[in-house]
């Protein structure tokens, strides 16, 4: 307990540092939330947890970095998102579309295998070098002041673009034809098919969508966190933690969960060596799995109806 008081005391003494930590936490939190939403989209339509979700983020940012050498930044990002979406589509069509009612174990193992293959291909293409996209506006040292707190403009880009993505997805699922069909699929695939919805295409669409948002998130965060061929696995685990923190399948709760984890992680540096930072997310994940598998915001009854 005294430790907690120390931290609070430190924070009060150094309000600026406090907000820096919050800003860093929010940045990471939004990225985790986007990865979690990617998990949710695919989980809702197929019942699969796609272990290769983090690889979409890696592919998006690495492709954009390469393309940025030949074309302006905005074009490079758009193209890399499209390429990653294509990868998502190809992945679904080649590996999942034609399987007839495979077991969960089989699906898990296939997505794990895919994530390894994508990572190894990325290693062969880009090597082990750490790369980064340039800052969208300004550079490493430029900052925007808010009431005396200095924040990198890239943080605003991350928060802005991720918020737009979250709202955009909500609108898409609520008002657009394909979005509504995907929700129908999620609710009951058999009935959706009987209503004339092409459920197989909806599954492909869900892979495309979650690849796309993952890639875009990878691009906006790349200037701050840097990109490397093996960045996908920790992101996938944290994204999964966030997804179950909010309750699997619930995208708005994922945003809250993401911010919670991001800020917790960023403040954990005050109390323990940063080498153990990853352990926080994993410990939270295990605690949630053991004690509240329906998530912080989920209801137990609803959870017990879902299949894993």
């Amino acid at each position: 307990m005294p430790l907690v008081f120390c931290i609070i005391f430190d924070c009060i003494m150094n309000i600026e540092l406090f907000f820096q930590y919050v800003a860093a936490g929010v940045t990471y939190g939004f990225i985790y939330a986007i990865v979690a939403i990617g998990f949710n989209i695919i989980y809702n339509t197929t019942g699969i947890i796609n272990f290769a979700q983090g690889e979409f983020v890696m592919l998006g940012s690495m492709t954009a970095i390469t393309l940025n050498a030949f074309m302006p930044l905005s074009l490079a990002i758009v193209l890399s998102v499209l390429i990653t979406m294509l990868v998502g589509a190809v992945m679904e069509i080649l590996f999942f579309r034609w399987l007839e009612s495979p077991s969960v174990l089989r699906m898990i193992i296939i997505t794990i295998g895919l994530s390894i293959i994508i990572r190894e291909i990325a290693l062969a293409i880009w090597g082990e070098n750490v790369r980064a996209l340039p800052y969208f506006t300004g550079n490493e040292v430029s900052s925007v002041s808010f009431a005396g707190v200095h924040i990198s403009p890239q943080v605003l880009w991350v928060v802005g673009i991720c918020s737009v993505m979250v709202v955009g997805l909500q609108v898409f699922f609520k008002y657009f034809r394909y979005g509504r069909q995907m929700r129908a699929c999620a609710a009951n695939r058999e009935v959706a098919r009987l209503c004339g919805i092409n459920t197989k295409n909806m599954v492909t669409l869900s892979f495309v969508l979650s690849a796309g948002i993952g890639a875009l998130a990878g691009c906006v965060v790349s200037p701050i966190t840097y990109s490397q061929y093996n960045m996908g696995v920790p992101l996938a685990i944290k994204g999964f933690t966030v997804a179950i923190l909010g309750g699997l399948g619930n995208s708005m709760a994922a945003v809250a969960g993401g911010l919670l984890l991001g800020i917790l992680e960023s403040f954990s540096v005050w109390v323990m060596p940063s080498a153990y930072k990853d352990a926080i997310a994993i410990s939270i994940m295990l605690l949630i799995l053991f004690f509240r598998p329906a998530g912080l915001f989920g209801r137990k009854e609803e959870f017990s109806l879902k299949e894993f």
Binding site: I49, I108, I237, F240, M285, F308
Partner: peptide
């Protein structure tokens, strides 16, 4: 079970 078991052991 299923995904949760896989993730917990992975963790």
């Amino acid at each position: 079970k299923g995904h949760y078991l896989a993730m917990a052991t992975l963790g």
